[in-house]
Computed example of a mutant assay.
Amino acid sequence: MSPAAQFLNGWGSSSIAAEPKPDDEGQPIGINNEYVVGRQIGAGGFSVVKEVIGMDNDGRRTKRAVKIVRKSVANASEAENDKAQQAVDYEIGIWRYLNHPYILQLHTSFITDFATFCIMDLVESGSLYDLLNELRNNGQMGLRPELARTYAHQLASALRYMHADVRLVHRDVKLENCLVQIGPQDDCGSMKLCDFGLASFVDGDSGMADSIRSLDSDDNKDPAGTLEYLAPELLGGSTRKDYSADIWAFGVCVYTMVTGKRPFAHTIQFKLVELIEAGDWNKDLVETSPAGQVACEDICDLLHGCLNTDPDLRWTIADVMDCKWFQGLVDVAADSDWEHVNNTQD
């Protein structure tokens, strides 16, 4: 058979293109199909994050992000898929109540037979972790002074809101969970704390605890969070879920923003644990950093308070907000006119 005949013989015999998945690019999603799925911008575990395009109430085009957790993921067992759905349901149950300028906002969420969808703010500048890595690759260790001070204060403001207003402990504060949105005319931008999958209410005074349960398993004795940011008492087997562990993790974030290095780092895990339990960090790195050359003593005072190995002597978020390094900065969300908890979803 000639090449031409072979071509004509195969014309139309190829299989029909697969039907698009509900979360494929170009597909409409939403309660009323008000969003169109765009390009993928991230993935991890059982979820993917994509852009979505929609319209606001004035008919203007809006760009947001959607976190998608499919009901069934290939190569995962039914139990694993069920656990992923429980985890996202738990996170939504907390996240939907949070409303703060330095917390990533959840606009709405909905569930279909295919997946759970979370529509949230789109942050395109990456995380503080990404920013510090980029600076390190360019030979700069740590953020410039005003940037380190601004982002540290914004993160502290988000934690003050969670601890004092909502009575919620985050339990996974880290640079990777601090997203940064920098506009074209914005020197600093704003930080957005995200990922509330490990968060727990400390008591029932928030008015929300009755409908939220912890996902911690009784047979799982490993501490929740990321090792490099874990407080020493958690490494010793403590199951306490109070605010002090967030303050320690905040201290680790501040030290890293200022110096470009973590206060406790080692490639061998048990050595890292020993360093964390000892609580000794390098003040010389703070002194020689860009921010340290401007306000070394004030920064070190904050770090000594946050990285105290005794959780009962560690600073509270109120102590953090009152520190000398933050003098002159205003916590806008502490204003009585700010709407905190209520009606944050569309």
Results as ranks from 00 to 15, higher is better:
Asp82Val: 08
Ala265Phe: 15
Asp337Asn: 09
Ile53Gln: 10
Lys271Gly: 07
Asp24Trp: 11
Asp322Val: 09
Ala84Trp: 00
Leu302Ile: 11
Cys253His: 01
Asp218Val: 12
Thr309Gly: 00
Arg160Gly: 03
Ser206Thr: 02
Ser217Phe: 05
Ser190Met: 13
Met208Leu: 15
Pro101Tyr: 11
Ala74Leu: 11
Tyr151Lys: 01
Arg70Ile: 02
Tyr102Met: 14
His304Met: 09
Lys241Met: 08
Ala74Pro: 03
Ala152Glu: 00
Leu155Ser: 03
Glu339Trp: 03
Ala334Asn: 05
Lys50Gly: 00
Glu91Arg: 06
Ser214Gln: 14
Glu146Gln: 14
Ala291Gly: 07
Ala65Lys: 03
Asn81Ile: 01
Gly225Cys: 12
Ile16Val: 15
Leu230Phe: 03
Arg60Leu: 15
Thr112Val: 05
Met141Phe: 11
Cys188Thr: 11
Leu303Asn: 02
Gln27Lys: 06
Gln269Val: 07
Val73Tyr: 01
Cys323Val: 06
Arg61His: 13
Asp121Lys: 14
Gly237Ser: 08
Gly93Ser: 09
Gly225Asn: 11
Val330Lys: 10
Ala156Thr: 04
Gly38Gln: 10
Asp280Gln: 13
Gly251Phe: 00
Ala148Val: 06
Ala333Gln: 04
Ala295Ile: 04
Pro223Cys: 07
Ser125Ile: 03
Lys283Thr: 15
Leu104Ala: 01
Arg213Asn: 12
Ile247Asp: 09
Asp23Ser: 05
Gln181Gly: 09
Tyr161Asn: 03
Leu234Gly: 07
Trp315Gly: 07
Trp281Ala: 04
Leu193Thr: 03
Asp301Leu: 07
Val294Glu: 14
Tyr243Ile: 04
Ala224Ser: 10
Ile92Val: 15
Gln140Cys: 13
Ile317Gln: 08
Ile53Val: 10
Ser47Ile: 06
Gln6Arg: 15
Trp281Ile: 04
Leu132Asp: 04
Gln181Leu: 11
Arg39Tyr: 12
Thr116His: 09
Cys118Gln: 14
Ser14Thr: 13
Tyr102Phe: 12
Met321Asn: 06
Gly197Met: 10
Gly225Lys: 05
Arg96Asn: 04
His304Gly: 05
Arg144Thr: 14
Leu8Gly: 03
Val254Gly: 01
Lys63Tyr: 07
Thr316His: 10
Asp24Ile: 05
Glu297Val: 12
Ser217Pro: 02
Glu34Tyr: 03
Glu277Met: 14
Cys323Lys: 07
Ser77Ile: 06
Gly197Arg: 08
Gln6Ser: 12
Ala84Gln: 02
Phe114Gln: 12
Gly126Lys: 05
Glu19Tyr: 08
Asp246Pro: 00
Glu91Ala: 05
Asp319Val: 02
Ser289Gly: 09
Ser13Trp: 06
Pro290Cys: 02
Cys178Glu: 03
Pro22Gly: 12
